[in-house]
Nucleic acid binder design. Structure first.
Lengths: 225, 225
DNA sequence: GTCGAAACGGACGGTGCCGTCCGGTTATGA
DNA sequence: TCATAACCGGACGGCACCGTCCGTTTCGAC
């Protein structure tokens, strides 16, 4: 029994495991309400746990954020796999975007986590990042070959629209209509028949570049100038 | 001479006026480098001025942010006027979006200020907000009447895309290509010929709702939970 | 040149969060 | 039941930022 946790470290005592679970639930709640910059102590209090316990399980804020939203990340990964196995290339493409955006819209705090946690977890196992990028490229090429996705769509555009959508739901956390509208507009403009004229050149963005990104880097460091 | 400043308060002494200018320049620089959450003291230091002087001129951070980006706001307002007077309704519509997005992309820190400062300045002179909303609605209706803008475009969509674009340039401050791509995609999907199928219903977003919005509200308050 | 008002800036107390330390508590296996 | 190791949590020192207070300096009118 309890064999499953052997993979990541030595066994955890029963009470410790229970507390770990409480902390993750509390973290999702607090991050949803106050953003991922909420005080660690607030998470601990909500979990009914001391600060030390929190730090013992999750030494850094990023570790907590990553663990708290690991399930959502997993959902994203699964959505990509499902998209690739959809017999209709366009529908697979469309559903991937809609699924990820729906998740960003529903799970408050996930967008910020998506931005903040991705880089490190990516840098950690670079080969996982490579696989994601390869799968995305495959998804795009397949939809283009079927004549459904416009030929000048570039895989980096996926990152662009996900970041833009993140920004939108962060600014308007309760406005699902706005999010759905944006996604609908974008999907329409990605259809092959929507291609009129030429687009500006694609971004050089790759998943590897996200680290630079958002307030994640500004949050921690005390400030130097 | 110096008549122009009579409108907002009694005359300022020469040195005071000079320092005020320095502070605004420094604020734009610091906000661009470190975001609008940068310490007030950093702005003062960069301006070669004491903290007290900074607080004397701008009692709150929001006041400083607003003043620092007033010029950019003014540019936006002018762009709206010009858009309305363009003989080609679609071109006016297109140029407004491109101008505002270009400004957001070029002036680092402006997007955040756009989000954070708009609400208050809007609430301040509600009739100015009303005018902006009316002008935007006119711009939209005019472009639709000309058969260039799709009929199901809703004025609130303008807010939606500006917020999304804000998010994008905040996440990738140095990636102009990404910003241009997003704008190009969106503009294409706004063309009347791009309308296929039906869109989800528009957001209830109006400019009046922006106040709720972003980290601006979370930044100041100490935290309650 | 003189003088009062205006402006200046450094220093300082207050606050909130971080992350560790350590004495007490509890689970677990014999 | 008991011993021990794992675990717990409050308290505490440190740090960065805020925003005001007050003695000093500078402007500019006469």
């Amino acid at each position: 029994m309890a064999e499953s946790s052997r993979i990541d470290g030595p066994e955890l005592r029963a009470d410790a495991r229970r507390n770990r679970g409480r902390i993750l639930v509390a973290a999702r709640e607090v991050f949803a309400e106050h953003g991922i910059d909420a005080p660690m102590a607030a998470v601990a209090r909500r979990a009914g746990v001391g600060v030390a316990t929190l730090y013992r399980r999750f030494p850094t804020r990023d570790a907590l954020v990553r663990a708290a939203f690991a399930q959502q990340m997993e959902t994203c990964a699964r959505a990509l796999t499902e998209a690739l196995s959809d017999p209709d290339p366009w529908r697979g493409f469309q559903r991937l975007i809609e699924t990820v955006c729906k998740l960003q819209r529903q799970e408050q705090g996930f967008p910020a986590a998506f931005l903040a946690a991705f880089p490190q977890s990516m840098a950690a196992h670079a080969q996982a990042r490579g696989r994601v990028e390869r799968d995305l490229a495959t998804l795009v090429r397949r939809a283009q070959a079927a004549g459904a996705l416009r030929a000048d769509f570039h895989p980096s555009d996926l990152g662009v629209i996900l970041l833009a959508h993140c920004g939108l739901v962060t600014a308007l956390p309760h406005d699902g209509a706005a999010s759905r509208r944006l996604v609908a507009y974008l999907l329409q403009s990605f259809r092959a028949e929507a291609a009129h004229g030429t687009l500006p050149p694609p971004s050089a963005l790759s998943l590897r570049d996200l680290p630079l990104a958002p307030e994640s880097s500004q949050r921690q460091r005390p400030f130097r100038a």
